[in-house]
Simulated scan of single mutants.
Amino acid sequence: MPSRDVGASRSSNEQRRKAVNEHYVDDPHDLHRAVQSWRECRVIGLDTEFIRTRTFYPIPALYQVATPDATYLVDPLPIDQWDDFADLLRDPNATIVMHACSEDLEVFARHLQIQPAGLFDTQVAEGFLGPDFSLSYAALVERYGGTTLAKQATRSDWLARPLSQGQLHYAREDVEHLLMLHESLVAGLRETGRLEWFEEENQRRTRANGVAPDQYYRSLKKAWRFSPRQLARLQGICSWREQRARTRDLPRQRVVRDEHLLDLAVEPRSDKEAVFGALPEPIAKRFSRDLARVLEAADALPETDLPPPLERPLNQRESELVKRLRAIARERAEQLGFAAELLSRRRDVEACLRYFIEHRQLHEVFRSWRYPLVGARFEELLETEVGSR
């Protein structure tokens, strides 16, 4: 197990430097100059603050950047030129250190139209060094740097201007320890021989995976019961709702709720009366014509163009097999002293079983760095329990 106090003294020195070298950037020319200085750094820390309460897309409210010498708070509201910043994030030679960055990826995709190349997620890295996968940024800073962070601004209105002193302090703290964490975590990964494992897993987890509008229907839990024709209706009205939500930048449930779409998809008719029968009257009045048109198009599809049935829930025997596979993975993770989530996440193990049933081979997730740890044992058990069926 790597030492937990790496970087503590360095963290305090960095804080003293950054207390002097703080920059608030709200001009495109200043951002251009800042990005040029960031390019000279091998590694930078990055965090975002955004709002997503009444919109489909996240609204960026602040970018925080940490270098070895300073912290930068970049105000996106008055800036309209982002090419330099986007190019930096796309540069595979730049290491961008973030913590639990899955939601931030949506900000980058929407605001900058990019997928960052050189992300280093400190939460994923810590998962290879200790038993807790979902440690917060504050917990990691306290563990490796001995500093306790205040979290009083987490629910602030980040779009309000001017930002308060409390918000500025929180924003700065949320990024200024990332370089210390990166150095400490990389040292631990090298010490344990797990750096390559992390790099492979980190690349998989920091890849943006958006849902295509015509595929959202597959995520609705009750849809597996639907016939192919009902699924075609559900796919059509979900895709319509998805397009409208994105065009109007509204949360999906503010357009039409999932449960109402499910009810509408099984209606025996496709006319406006069917829409009024399944949806609340105010919603039906607004959208009955559009939805009836979508339902009629779905009902007109030939049988050969209908979507296939969705995956059913696992049966009792399959669920027991998932439990056995996860027990193998948890035991191995405990032996290695790292987070069981990396080996036994239910979603991954269930996908592995379903894939094996259909293809008679392991899912790619367990043909990766996981194979010598649990993949071979998974394969043996699945061959015994599934291969002969």
Rank of each mutant, 00 (worst) to 15 (best):
E379W: 08
S227C: 06
D305N: 13
A208Q: 12
C41V: 01
T71P: 06
R161A: 11
I328F: 14
D174G: 04
W197Y: 14
L362I: 14
R345L: 10
N315D: 15
K222M: 13
R246G: 01
L195N: 05
A139T: 09
A160G: 05
P76I: 02
A340K: 10
A70L: 08
P68G: 03
G127T: 11
L220S: 02
L105Q: 06
Y216E: 10
T71L: 05
D47M: 02
S319L: 10
D26T: 01
D249Y: 03
E22S: 13
E380N: 13
W82I: 01
R218N: 06
S319I: 03
V25E: 03
G7R: 03
R377K: 14
A333R: 00
L112D: 02
L295E: 03
E200F: 12
Y216H: 13
T55K: 01
H260F: 12
P76M: 08
A298V: 00
R332W: 07
R389F: 11
A19W: 11
V275P: 00
D157G: 09
H359Q: 14
S288D: 09
R332P: 03
S219D: 13
K151G: 09
H182A: 04
Q64C: 06
R269T: 07
S164Y: 04
T53L: 12
P162T: 14
E200Y: 13
S102Y: 07
S239C: 09
A171G: 04
L149E: 05
A138L: 08
P282E: 15
I79S: 05
L73W: 07
T304K: 14
V107C: 07
D249E: 11
R370V: 06
N21L: 08
R257C: 05
V349P: 04
L220R: 10
Q152M: 10
A19M: 09
Y216I: 04
D83K: 15
F133M: 15
V43K: 11
D132F: 15
S134D: 15
E303D: 14
L250C: 05
F198D: 01
E259I: 03
R54L: 10
Y170Q: 05
H182Q: 07
L185C: 06
Q152N: 15
G337H: 13
M180I: 14
I357T: 08
R293P: 00
T95I: 13
L119V: 12
E142F: 11
A19N: 14
F366T: 00
I96E: 00
L181H: 03
N209G: 09
L353E: 01
T122E: 04
T122K: 08
D104H: 07
P282F: 12
P131L: 12
L195Y: 15
D249H: 05
Q113H: 14
M1P: 13
D271S: 10
A208H: 13
A125E: 03
G277F: 08
Y355G: 02
E176Y: 06
D258V: 10
R233A: 05
E331C: 09
R172V: 05
L250V: 00
P2I: 07
Y216G: 00
R312Q: 11
A274Q: 08
A160V: 02
S9R: 15
D157V: 04
A340P: 02
A138S: 15
E311C: 03
A278Y: 03
T147F: 12
L279A: 10
G277R: 13
T67S: 15
N315R: 14
L264R: 01
A339R: 01
P213F: 06
R229G: 04
L373P: 03
E303M: 00
R110Y: 07
I96Q: 02
P162R: 03
